[in-house]
Each structure stands twice: as structure tokens, then as C-alpha cells.
């Protein structure tokens, strides 16, 4: 009986932890993609100062997000996103608008893929 109760408690903890993990990943995804999207919009409107500030902000947000996401997802994916985001501030600072926007879109796709791969959907399970 004790073992059964321990198993039930353990199952509850596992499900809760997995749920928290998915929720964390999705909330960080929304936050970072929101900032990067704003940076893209600013670059398209030729407000390069704002685009730069947003690019720096996205990098800072990613650094803190990475710490929180490390227990829940592959470190390789996190590294890839980190590398992609780190390119953004210098690109917009030195006036390379088209490449900046391209890299922003690439980063958004990477973050979306990272989040989607952790969601328990049929395509991920199989």
C-alpha cells in the first residue's frame, strides 16, 4: 500500500513537473519572439536605434531564459538559439538591415521549433 501511495505521489510530481516545463518554455517563447518581432518591425520602419535596443534586450532576456529552460530542454538547441540571437545587435548596429531581418526570422523559427518540440503532440511523440 505504501509503495502504491509513493507511486501515485511520484506520478503526480512527474506530471506536474512536465506541465510546468512546457508552460515555462511556451511563456519564454512568447516573450522572446515578441521582442524580436518588435525589433524586426522597428528595422522595417528604419528606426534602427529602437531595433538595436530591442536586439540587445532580446539577448539579455535570452540569457536569463536560458538558465530557466536548461533543465527542460536540449542544451544544444538552447546553444543554437543563443548563437543566433547574439548576432542580432551587431548586425543592426553596423547597418546591415536585410541580414538583420533575415537573422531575426531565423531566430524566431529556431525558438518556435524549440518550443514546439517540447509540446506533447502526436507528431513529437511518434
Amino acid at each position: 500500500m505504501k509503495r502504491l501511495i509513493a507511486a501515485a505521489v511520484l506520478m503526480l510530481m512527474l506530471v506536474s513537473f512536465c506541465t510546468v516545463g512546457v508552460v515555462q518554455i511556451l511563456s519564454h517563447e512568447d516573450k522572446i519572439i515578441g521582442i524580436i518581432s518588435q525589433a524586426v518591425e522597428a528595422a522595417e520602419n528604419e528606426d534602427y536605434q529602437l531595433a538595436y535596443e530591442l536586439a540587445v534586450k532580446s539577448e539579455e532576456e535570452w540569457i536569463s531564459s536560458e538558465q530557466e529552460l536548461a533543465p527542460f530542454t536540449s542544451h544544444l538547441h538552447l546553444n543554437d538559439v543563443g548563437l543566433a540571437i547574439s548576432k542580432l545587435p551587431p548586425l543592426i548596429k553596423y547597418g546591415n538591415k536585410s541580414q538583420f531581418i533575415s537573422e531575426c526570422k531565423y531566430t524566431i523559427v529556431q525558438i518556435t521549433h524549440l518550443a514546439d518540440s517540447e509540446v506533447p503532440s502526436l507528431s513529437n511523440i511518434f
Binding site: L10, M11, L14, F17, C18, A70, P71, F72, T73, S74, H75, L76
Partner: peptide, 13 residues
């Protein structure tokens, strides 16, 4: 590169 918790969760499950 794999989170430690992945292994722990799988074992405990």
C-alpha cells in the same frame, strides 16, 4: 547536452 531531468523522469515513470 541532454537535460539530467529527462533521464530521471524516464526512470521514475
Amino acid at each position: 547536452n541532454s537535460p539530467l531531468i529527462n533521464g530521471v523522469i524516464a526512470i521514475l515513470t
